[in-house]
């Protein structure tokens, strides 16, 4: 894999997505909520009966799809960033602590990780969000708390080898405390790797959120979400395929961009975001 090429692809895809999400709301026609009964299911690039032009058409309620796609993207990105932040902090902290101290602390933390892995993430999220009810904040925190394992395992693995590295040992012989070593040596050395995992996980979380929304358990109306838009479009698949296809394309651009980004910084023998079993 030529890393340069995947870097270029990644950056272009992400740039397109960011520009789309930022610029669309600045347009004069921007209106993600406004319904137009005179213009439901307007095809792409056509005008409604009352003469309004819709670049990407309208949905069943006559809402502008272009505007809704942009707003849904912002919501997804926001949830994704929040979840990545939560899981990165929790995962790196638990992973480093487990790897540096070892012993019962490690057994406990890694046991928790194994346990969490044995309940498929989507199912856990379905169960929890069905019970406590989904909201944007809830989703970000829930997605974050169920995603720490990826960071935790990689961080622990690295901490295990870092703690035996001679610069950590010699800091200990100089009188450094555990907190010093974790802060000064372990954290800076695992962080770049964590950001690579993060960019992969970001994509996964966007997919996860979209899947939940598709199942009706994610973002709730009137806020739009790509997953929900696909689900709404499914009933009109034969009639107006663009309803389901357009949000799918948006999802693809964002997720592929993030995935190529993490791949671009991963060497050949590794797979971003996938860690080995803790043993």
């Amino acid at each position: 894999m030529t890393f340069d090429l995947s870097r270029i692809v990644a950056v272009s895809l992400l740039a397109i997505m960011i520009l789309f999400m930022v610029l669309t709301p600045l347009m004069p026609f921007y209106d993600p909520y406004g319904q137009n009964l005179a213009g439901s299911l307007v095809p792409m690039g056509e005008s409604s009966f009352d003469g309004k032009f819709y670049l990407l058409g309208t949905d069943t309620l006559g809402r502008d799809i272009l505007s809704r796609l942009a707003l849904a993207g912002q919501v997804s990105a926001l949830i994704g960033l929040g979840a990545v932040a939560v899981s990165l902090v929790v995962g790196v902290f638990l992973g480093l602590v487990a790897g540096y101290f070892r012993g019962p602390v490690e057994t406990l933390i890694m046991g928790l990780a194994d346990l969490q892995l044995s309940i498929p993430r989507v199912l856990l999220l379905i169960a929890v969000s069905a019970i406590i009810g989904p909201s944007v904040t809830n989703l970000a925190i829930l997605l974050g708390l169920t995603s720490w394992v990826a960071y935790g395992r990689v961080a622990r693995g690295m901490a295990l080898s870092l703690r035996e590295r001679e610069f950590v040992l010699s800091a200990r012989t100089q009188g450094a405390t555990a907190a010093w070593n974790i802060r000064k040596h372990l954290l800076p050395n695992v962080l770049p790797q964590m950001l690579i995992v993060g960019s992969y996980e970001f994509g996964q979380i966007v997919v996860m959120e979209a899947s939940l929304s598709y199942l009706g358990l994610g973002v709730q109306p009137p806020l739009p979400s790509w997953g929900m838009m696909v689900s709404e479009g499914q009933s009109y698949l034969a009639l107006a395929p663009s309803l389901a296809i357009l949000p799918s394309i948006a999802l693809f651009i964002l997720v592929a961009g993030l995935q190529f980004l993490s791949q671009a910084f991963t060497s050949e023998g590794e797979v971003a975001g996938v860690s080995e079993r803790s043993k």
Partner: peptide, 23 residues
């Protein structure tokens, strides 16, 4: 007290590639 006394006894390890924090 241990951390203070550690000053008197220091070490140089084998591997020059792992003895310095690359960052």
């Amino acid at each position: 007290r241990l951390r203070a006394k550690r000053r008197d006894l220091q070490v140089v390890f084998q591997d020059p590639y792992s003895s310095l924090d690359p960052r």
